[in-house]
């Protein structure tokens, strides 16, 4: 079901545009793409390609992936520890690290020996960060702060909460401003009503 904003699937699609390094074992001339040229590829010479092309070539057994450094067991352990220690959100390897790890773990099983452990670590990190996010949001709504600054958060993490939070804040805002415009008297409450009608005609549901 679509939630109206970015779905995890759509984010995965966007993540496939991130460049990774592969070692091809075939020869290709330059690919001329709209987003830029890729290649040329020579056997055993590392080359940077978008993730989708890496997956495509891997399925045809035409390349091997150089696994990104952040997807190793040690790096993820370190990240998990950091997340546990910090109250705020820690640095992440990239804007699409969750999606990328999912794609890489699905398609490049041979390159990653501890894929199960890594999968679990990534899940742990997301869970820690999501619980932090929920805590922050809960506090934010409770204390009715004007704004909140959140650094180092990625799209996929926002996915779990975005609509709920924005609609909830909308409702809170409506409750806070209830009757504010027409406290003066009857004539003003009239104009207030007409503006409400305009708004409703703009939002046919």
């Amino acid at each position: 079901m679509s939630t109206g904003t970015f779905d995890p699937d759509e984010l995965e699609f966007l993540a496939e545009d991130i460049f990774v390094t592969i070692i091809p074992n075939v020869k290709f001339p330059i690919f001329y793409m709209l987003s830029g040229d890729i290649g040329p590829m020579e056997p055993n010479i590392p080359v940077e390609v978008p993730l989708w092309l890496a997956v495509h070539m891997r399925q045809r057994r035409q390349c091997r992936l150089v696994v990104p450094e952040w997807l190793s067991l040690e790096a993820l352990m370190e990240q998990k520890d950091r997340e546990l220690k910090l109250d705020l959100f820690g640095e992440v390897p990239g804007p699409f690290y969750v999606e990328m790890s999912q794609i890489i773990l699905d398609n490049f099983t041979e390159e990653i020996p501890d894929s199960n452990k890594i999968r679990r670590l990534v899940k742990d990190i997301i869970d820690i960060r999501l619980s932090k996010l929920r805590g922050t949001v809960g506090l934010h709504v409770k204390k009715s702060e004007m704004y909140a600054v959140v650094n180092n958060i990625t799209q996929i993490e926002l996915c779990s909460l975005r609509n709920l939070l924005t609609r909830g804040m909308d409702q809170l805002d409506m409750l806070k401003n209830a009757g504010l415009h027409n406290a003066g008297g009857a004539s003003q409450s009239f104009s207030d009503d007409s503006s409400a009608l305009e708004v409703s005609s703009m939002n046919p549901s």
């Binding site: 779905d7 996929i156 609609r167």
Partner: peptide
């Protein structure tokens, strides 16, 4: 009633994330 609608929105989002994570679709 409005809270229930919010709950449904939240659940839909959460479920879409979970089912993506488990590769259900």
């Amino acid at each position: 009633r409005s809270e229930r609608q919010l709950l449904e929105i939240g659940k839909a989002e959460q479920n879409s994330l979970i089912s993506w994570n488990q590769r259900k679709k």
